Structure formats: structure tokens, C-alpha cells
Amino acid sequence: MKPQNKTKRLTLLTMLLGMAMIVNMLEPSLPFAFPGIKLGLANVLGLFALYFLGVREMYIVNIMRVLLVSLVRGTFLGAGFWPAFIGSLVSCTMVVLFRKFTNMSEVGISAASATFHNVGQILVIVFYFNSPFMISYLPIMLLLGIPTGILTGYLVQAINKRFKIS
């Protein structure tokens, strides 16, 4: 059921990006126990793009989401931009590697995505902002990020079954 027509592919990609931006902008308003921790629901749309359209489209949805949301919020190239941008870039790259070299399900891929997004964020904070003590926040982020990655993985799996992708 994958769209073959270029116009349909571009339309779907644009809709996924728009939905990912909306989810990304609404997610911080959800109550959560730790600052900076989100469910990663926007990643569901990026992973759906991976399975439905391809690797390039996943990068487009995830990277363009970070870029465009930061422009809308007025945080482009600010302190919060870099951890989100590098986290998304590392996450996408690791998803591609895990998908290519392992037999992981959507749930495993999503958990890996969440894990490496957190690792990328912390590395940026530690090195770019010269804050080595922030490495101690990584276990907390992983403790919360991996279960949310699993949750979003189940969402991706359910969507893929609905669209008969997996």
C-alpha cells in the first residue's frame, strides 16, 4: 500500500512532518515527573515514515521537525536546539544501523531510538556546554526513555499492522 506516485509520497511526507511538529509542540504540556523528559510521541511518525516510505523520509521527518519547531518557538540555534538536533541525528543513524544489521521489531527499534536520542542529548550537553556533571542524568533519562521507547514502539507496530507494513 506504499504510495508510488511522487506527489502522493510528498503529500504523505508533508503530512507526517506536520503531525510530528504538532505532537512535538504539544508534548511538553503533558505532565511528567522530570524536566526535559518527553514520551517521544513525535518519533512514532518518524518511525512510521521509515517503515512506510524509507530511510531518507525518516531523517526528513525527524530532522525537519526539530528545525521547524525550533524556528516556530524562536529557539533555533539556541541552547535547547543542539541537544534535540544531535539527539535526533544520532537516533536516526542508530535506527538505520539496527534495522540493517539486526532483526529487531518495531518495539526494539523504537527503544534503541529513544536510548540513542538520550545519549546524543547528554553528549551534546556534556561537551558543547562543558557540563560533565550532566552525564549523571543519563541513567535517569534511560530509565524513563527506554520504557517510553517501548511504548512508542508498540504504537508504531500497531500502525504498521493497520497499514499492512510488517
Rank of each mutant, 00 (worst) to 15 (best):
Met1Cys: 08
Pro3Ile: 09
Gln4Leu: 15
Gln4Ala: 14
Asn5Gln: 13
Asn5Ala: 10
Lys8Ile: 14
Leu13Gln: 09
Leu17Ser: 05
Met21Gln: 03
Met21Lys: 01
Leu26Arg: 07
Glu27Met: 12
Pro28Asn: 03
Ser29Pro: 00
Phe32Glu: 01
Pro35Lys: 08
Ile37Pro: 01
Leu39Arg: 01
Gly40Val: 06
Gly40Arg: 04
Leu41Met: 13
Ala42Pro: 07
Asn43Arg: 05
Asn43Leu: 05
Gly46Trp: 00
Leu50Met: 14
Tyr51Gly: 12
Tyr51Cys: 09
Tyr51Pro: 08
Phe52Leu: 13
Leu53Gln: 11
Gly54Ile: 14
Gly54His: 04
Val55Tyr: 06
Ile60Lys: 03
Val61Asp: 03
Ile63Pro: 11
Ile63Leu: 15
Leu68Asp: 06
Ser70Ile: 10
Leu71Lys: 09
Ala79Arg: 13
Ala79Lys: 13
Pro83Gln: 02
Phe85Leu: 14
Ser88Ile: 04
Cys92Arg: 03
Cys92Thr: 07
Cys92Gln: 00
Cys92Met: 09
Cys92Val: 09
Thr93Ser: 15
Thr93Val: 12
Val96Ile: 10
Val96Ser: 03
Phe98Met: 15
Lys100Arg: 15
Asn103Thr: 14
Asn103Pro: 00
Val107Phe: 00
Gly108Trp: 04
Gly108His: 05
Ser110Leu: 06
Ala111Asn: 04
Ser113Asn: 11
Ala114Pro: 04
Phe116Ala: 04
Ile122Ser: 02
Val126Ile: 13
Phe129His: 09
Pro132Tyr: 03
Pro132Glu: 04
Met134His: 00
Tyr137Asp: 00
Met141Arg: 10
Leu151Tyr: 11
Val156Thr: 07
Ile159His: 01
Lys161Glu: 09
Ile165His: 03
